[in-house]
Design a protein around this nucleic acid. Structure first.
Length: 505
RNA sequence: GCUCCGUUCGUCUAGGGGUUAGGACGCCAGGUUUUCAUCCUGGUAGCAGGGGUUCAAAUCCCCUACGGAGUACCA
């Protein structure tokens, strides 16, 4: 293979959703694995759909995911500009070439005219297609006398330029994921290549740029599969070597029908976007994986395995291993229903892989938001104790809040089950014993408690849970003696006393 | 409607002529634990249907059904 060059080419019409991130990820993995280049090209040829902030959002999302670009608007490179709106002159030149060679033609039909035609045929349950069969009855440079076309052009009549689909040919190409795809040219229509506004449509801009930027592999979503034959024909019309194609399967909704869409997340309680997105027009906010407490590595890993597998039983892959293992040939053909539960599981896996230092840093941010200042070393110890019970970063609070704040309420169910008539009295005695522990350290605390329970011939579970209730407020959390050690002697005794006072039978 | 693509446990998937059809998530049960969670062990559940080809089909071919994508002067 010659030089591998791939590209991800979003249009800045809104936030990038996880399907787009996956497409970019597969491009990235493929490029990195083969020592190729990854290019970010902004396809902003539709001025009407431009959304402020979208481009920036895209860049920030990739930064968070750890997907880097070798060339692009920000990264620079020798094949720029990387924004299509800055390449108009280039497209004009190439559409001229197509016109000259007779592969494209001017069409003067107005959008209104075409709409009328579409509606008329729809009533007859037929579909209007601008193609080899209908084009001679429409108003274009193929059907009109030469002089009339020239006059219309001279008069400045608005026009579009359409591709002239060749008649009666078999178009076929090889897709790395799907194998040979064949389509007959008679089923293709004369797509608009150049719009009235003087800008190209996706089809033209895409082919010209991929050629000029020397893209070797076009890895994109399945939604492009139906227009791939047109693209192949375009390459042939230009007599350019075409890249290799790989069309990725779509990501489907977890339940119900259809592909995953913007609003599914809020409806079903999971994010669809990498980062939180606030729509500048409606003011609506869409949840992001980052804000929901996902680690980028987990998000990326989950996405990678949604439609691809390494053929081994390994599931947890840091980015480097993903790069090593990735193969386009092992991408599955069918659409994958997204499973939010599995996403959580991946997050849990990566949280365990993180060091206590890193986790403590992340947790410290949450603590600060709650106006809690704690020495980071202390937080590290706490994080180490509870990290195996945590799925998301914010779970650290639900799992460890009692290290920072005394319980304000006691779980009624636990009170009922574990706090008997004589419990208060026993706890009071226990406070006395514990106050005699000199070196406030888990082992000593545990010995003290055990000795007391044995001496009094009390029920172990009953007593321990009553103490836990006093310190934590419910029946959860790690080893009791460790909790006692970390909250400190005074606080521990105070909480026990407070419980005796507040829980009355 | 038309064109293209697809279909293995509920979900993500392995397997591509001879397999007890494997793994993971979820769910259930048991064990560990002073509690909860983790963890460990086990269980649950699948080749869309029908025709071929073959000694033999989840695997190859055809049809049907179902699902998905596309069908814009959007990408």
């Amino acid at each position: 293979m010659s030089d591998i060059r791939v590209r991800f080419a979003p249009s800045p019409t809104g936030p990038l959703h996880m399907g787009g991130v996956r497409t970019a990820l597969y491009n990235f993995l493929f490029a990195r694995k083969h020592g190729g280049k990854m290019i970010l090209r902004i396809e902003d040829t539709d001025q009407n759909r431009f959304v402020a902030g979208a481009e920036d959002y895209i860049e920030r999302s990739f930064e968070w995911c750890g997907i880097q670009f070798d060339e692009g608007v920000k990264a620079g490179g020798d094949f720029g500009p990387y924004k299509q709106s800055e390449r108009s002159a280039i497209y004009r030149e190439y559409i001229g070439e197509l016109l000259e060679k007779g592969h494209a033609y001017y069409a003067f039909d107005t959008p209104e005219e075409l709409d009328t035609l579409r509606n008329e045929l729809e009533e007859k349950k037929e579909t209007f297609v601008y193609d080899t069969k209908s084009r001679m009855s429409l108003r274009n440079s193929l059907s009109l006398p030469k002089e009339e076309t020239e006059k219309l052009l001279l008069d400045g009549t608005p026009y579009v330029i359409r591709f002239k689909i060749p008649e009666n040919t078999e178009v076929s190409f090889t897709d790395i994921i799907r194998g040979t795809v064949k389509v007959h040219s008679s089923t293709l229509d004369d797509k608009v290549l150049f719009k009235t506004d003087g800008l190209p449509t996706y089809h033209l801009a895409n082919i010209v740029d991929d050629h000029l930027m020397q893209i070797s592999h076009v890895i994109r979503g399945e939604e492009w599969l139906p227009s791939a034959p047109l693209h192949v024909l375009l390459y042939e019309a230009f007599k350019w070597e075409k890249p290799q194609f790989a069309h990725l399967p779509v990501i489907l909704k977890p339940v119900g029908k259809g592909k995953l869409s913007k609003r599914d997340g809020d409806k079903m309680g999971f994010p669809v976007f990498p980062l939180e997105w606030k729509d500048p027009k409606s003011g609506e906010t869409f949840a992001g994986y980052r804000e929901d407490g996902y680690l980028p590595e987990a998000f990326v890993n989950m996405l990678a395995l949604l439609g691809w597998n390494p053929g081994t039983e390994q599931e947890v892959f840091p980015m480097e291993e993903l790069i090593q293992a990735f193969e386009l040939e092992r991408v599955v053909k069918s659409g994958a229903k997204f499973n939010p539960d599995k996403a959580k599981w991946f997050n849990q896996q990566f949280i365990r892989l993180k060091s206590d230092q890193e986790l403590a840093q992340a947790f410290d941010k949450i603590l600060k938001e709650k106006s809690i200042e704690a020495p980071i070393g202390h937080t590290e110890k706490i994080v180490a104790l509870v990290k195996e019970r945590v799925e998301f970063i914010q779970d650290f609070w639900t799992q460890a809040h009692f290290f920072y704040k005394a319980p304000e309420e006691y779980d009624v169910k636990v009170v009922k089950k574990r706090w008997k008539e004589d419990t208060g009295a026993h706890i009071t005695e226990m406070i006395e014993k514990l106050s005699q522990v000199d070196i406030w350290q888990a082992d000593n605390i545990k010995d003290c408690m055990n000795a007391f329970i044995q001496e009094k011939e009390l029920n172990m579970g009953q007593m321990m849970n009553a103490i836990r209730l006093s310190l934590v407020g419910s029946s959860m959390g790690p080893d009791l003696a460790l909790i006692a050690e970390l909250i400190g002697k005074d606080e521990c005794l105070a909480r026990l006393a407070k419980a005796v006072e507040r829980i009355k039978k």
